[in-house]
Computed example of a mutant assay.
Amino acid sequence: RTAVERVNAYLKEFFGLNHVRHRTGKKARLHFQLVTLVYNASRLATDRIKKMKAEQMSKAA
């Protein structure tokens, strides 16, 4: 539960999910889905970069 709450707090703070003001639920849902898509893509990219760097460091040693 704490891991999920940490992600929710991050999304609220850095992606502006605290202040979503749409007249319809459809727009709010789309906004949330786009934010989570961007968040997951950025996490995937950083994890892959970290993995590549770790592999390079192990090969160099």
Rank of each mutant, 00 (worst) to 15 (best):
V20G: 00
L44M: 10
M52A: 15
N8W: 11
M52L: 15
R43M: 13
F32V: 07
R1D: 13
L34E: 15
E13R: 13
L34R: 15
V38S: 04
G25Q: 05
R21W: 03
Q56H: 06
A28D: 04
Q33T: 09
T46G: 02
V38A: 11
A45V: 07
R6P: 01
A9N: 08
Q56K: 12
G25A: 04
A45D: 08
Y10V: 02
H19M: 00
V38I: 12
Q56P: 02
R29Q: 08
K53H: 07
L30N: 12
R48D: 06
A54I: 03
A9Y: 07
N8K: 15
G16F: 02
T24H: 03
T2F: 12
A3D: 15
V35D: 02
A45G: 01
R21K: 10
L44D: 11
T46Q: 15
E5Q: 12
I49C: 01
R43E: 11
M57G: 03
L37H: 08
A45W: 09
L11S: 03
M57A: 14
N18W: 11
K12N: 10
A45M: 09
T2D: 14
K53A: 12
V7H: 06
E13M: 07
L34F: 07
V20W: 00
V20S: 03
A61C: 03
Y39D: 02
A54M: 09
V38L: 09
S58P: 02
K12W: 02
G16N: 04
V4H: 05
S58K: 14
R29S: 02
S42F: 12
R23P: 08
R23Q: 15
E55M: 08
N18E: 14
F32Q: 00
L17Q: 00
N40E: 10
Y10F: 14
T2N: 13
T24G: 01
L37G: 04
E13P: 00
A28W: 03
M57K: 12
N8D: 13
N18L: 09
G25P: 02
R21V: 09
K27F: 09
R43I: 11
E5F: 08
H19Q: 03
R6H: 06
K50W: 08
M52E: 15
L17G: 01
K53N: 12
K26F: 02
S58T: 08
G16I: 00
M57N: 06
A61K: 11
R6F: 05
D47P: 01
H22E: 10
L37C: 08
I49L: 13
R29G: 01
M57Y: 08
F14E: 06
V20D: 02
V35W: 01
V4G: 04
L30I: 08
T36A: 05
L11W: 00
R23G: 11
S58Y: 06
S42W: 08
K59M: 07
R43T: 08
H31I: 03
R43V: 13
K53T: 04
S42L: 14
H31R: 06
M52K: 14
L11T: 00
L44T: 10
T46V: 12
H19K: 03
L34T: 11
E55F: 05
N18A: 05
V35T: 05
E5T: 05
R48L: 13
A3V: 14
Y10K: 04
A60S: 11
Y10S: 04
L30E: 14
E55Y: 04
F14C: 03
A28H: 00
L37K: 13
N8G: 10
N40S: 09
Q56Y: 07
H22V: 01
M57S: 07
K59D: 10
